[in-house]
Computed example of a mutant assay.
Amino acid sequence: MVLDGSGAPVCITQTERVEIKNLNKVTADHAYLEGEGNRSLEYWRKVHKDFFEKEYYQAGKVFTDEIPCICETFKVVYKQEPGH
C-alpha cells in the first residue's frame, strides 16, 4: 500500500520482481520504469549516487558504485480516485 504525505492510502501495488544488483549494474530499463526525472539511466545514476554518498558519509562508511541496490518492479492493482 502506498500512502500520501498525510498517511492516507492512495494505491495498492503488487510486486512482480525483486533483484539485488550493484548500483553500477542497474539497467536503463529499470531507470525508465522508476519514472524519475527524464527517465534516463544517466539521471537515475546521478540522483541515486548523490543520495547514497550522503547516507554513507553520515554513517561513517565509504560509498562505491558497487554497493548493493534492491530493484523492485511492481504494478498498481488499485488506485484511489482523486477526491475520495
Rank of each mutant, 00 (worst) to 15 (best):
K21T: 09
E55K: 14
T64D: 05
L3F: 14
K61G: 08
Y43F: 15
E66F: 07
A31D: 02
L33R: 06
S6L: 13
K61I: 09
G5N: 13
Y57W: 14
G37L: 04
H48Q: 09
F51S: 03
E55G: 04
C11W: 01
D4P: 01
E19W: 03
F52T: 03
Y57D: 15
V47L: 06
G5R: 09
E53P: 05
N38M: 08
G7M: 04
G35M: 06
D65S: 10
V2P: 00
F63I: 01
N38G: 05
P9I: 02
R39D: 10
Y43E: 07
E34I: 00
Q14C: 14
E55H: 06
T27F: 01
Y56P: 05
E19K: 08
E34Q: 05
H30M: 04
D4M: 07
F52V: 07
L41D: 00
A28Q: 09
K46S: 11
A8K: 15
V2D: 10
K61S: 11
T64W: 08
S6H: 11
G60Y: 02
H48E: 06
G7E: 03
C11F: 03
T15Q: 13
L33K: 05
I12G: 04
V2M: 09
P9R: 02
G60E: 04
S6M: 12
E16C: 05
R45C: 09
E53H: 08
G37H: 03
R17G: 05
E19A: 09
Q58E: 15
R45V: 13
R17N: 14
D65W: 09
V10M: 08
F51I: 03
N24K: 10
R39H: 12
